[in-house]
């Protein structure tokens, strides 16, 4: 009886998930077609012959290897910096009392509401003065300063759920504050580290605005800017454009599937963040 009552829900869920998946399927389908087959109406869902060589063609038409390496470098460094510095700052906010702590914490939360456009131009001027235009520094160094308010907040929320008795026991054993952070808190924080790492990886892998402002020479491009260049130069080769887009999408999806179990636990914390 109860099962039958849920049938409409299943119907809606299956229909909606099909709708959510169609754009992916359509992209894959187009990426595997000969270009002239992409331009048929009504559209053909299953390609006549899967044209796997669209992928190497797109990859080699422009220097994607270089772009992927650039993006990986930026993404890996910023992600590591974000995890380490955000957890240090969160440790300070969650485990210590000091003057001005709450004022600082609320200021930090308030910065989440500040539109990036307000600081974009002066920050650009700083990097220009330092001669760092067309380098990776403007994209990497800011991650070393706590890695963003949201990540610090997530880390802090998680640390607050860990019993302080662990810290105290370690302290009795002679551990210093730094060791407590490294040896006690971090090893217990798998889910939130995974969440911050995945969110940071994805956001830097995706980032468009920063590279658009700071990178000028094509050999320094990231994948997102490179894909934009591909659109400009080979926009009519829709099959290859879709193949190139998939190359951009794939790492985020693979990463998400590997980290999903931990990741969802951590994301749930951000839901509690609203409380």
């Amino acid at each position: 009886m109860k099962r039958i009552a849920k049938l409409p829900s299943y119907f809606v869920l299956i229909l909606l998930s099909a709708l959510f998946l169609v754009p992916f399927l359509w992209t894959v389908s187009t990426a595997l077609k000969a270009n002239e087959d992409a331009f048929t109406f009504p559209p053909q869902w299953i390609p006549n012959h899967a044209q796997w060589d669209n992928f190497p063609k797109a990859w080699t038409a422009l220097p994607f290897t270089q772009w992927v390496l650039n993006t990986l470098f930026i993404t890996v460094v910023t992600t590591a910096a974000t995890v380490i510095t955000s957890s240090l700052v969160a440790y300070g906010f969650s485990r210590f009392k000091f003057r001005g702590r709450n004022a600082m914490f609320y200021t930090m939360l308030a910065t989440m509401m500040l539109p990036g456009q307000v600081t974009m131009i002066p920050v650009f001027m700083i990097w220009r003065t330092l001669g760092a235009i067309d380098t990776f520094y403007p994209l990497i160094l800011p991650a070393f300063f706590g890695g963003g308010a949201f990540n610090i907040f997530l880390m802090r929320q998680f640390f607050l759920t860990l019993p302080r008795e662990y810290d105290e026991a370690a302290m009795l054993d002679g551990a210093g504050f730094f060791r407590i952070w490294w040896k006690i808190l971090l090893p217990l924080s798998g889910p939130v580290i995974a969440t911050v790492a995945v969110l940071s990886f994805i956001s830097h892998w995706d980032e468009f605005n920063g590279p658009l402002i700071y990178l000028n020479s094509p050999e320094k491009y990231t994948v997102s800017i490179g894909l934009r260049m591909f659109q400009d130069s080979y926009g009519s080769e829709t099959n290859q454009l879709m193949a190139a887009s998939l190359i951009h999408i794939l790492p985020t999806i693979v990463l998400f599937f590997f980290a999903q179990r931990y990741f969802m636990k951590g994301i749930n914390l951000s839901g509690l963040g609203g409380r």
Binding site: G92, F144, W181
Partner: peptide, 11 residues
């Protein structure tokens, strides 16, 4: 108190 402040200085 000092340690806590130091940990938050990156931010």
């Amino acid at each position: 108190g000092v340690a806590g402040f130091l940990f938050t200085t990156p931010w």
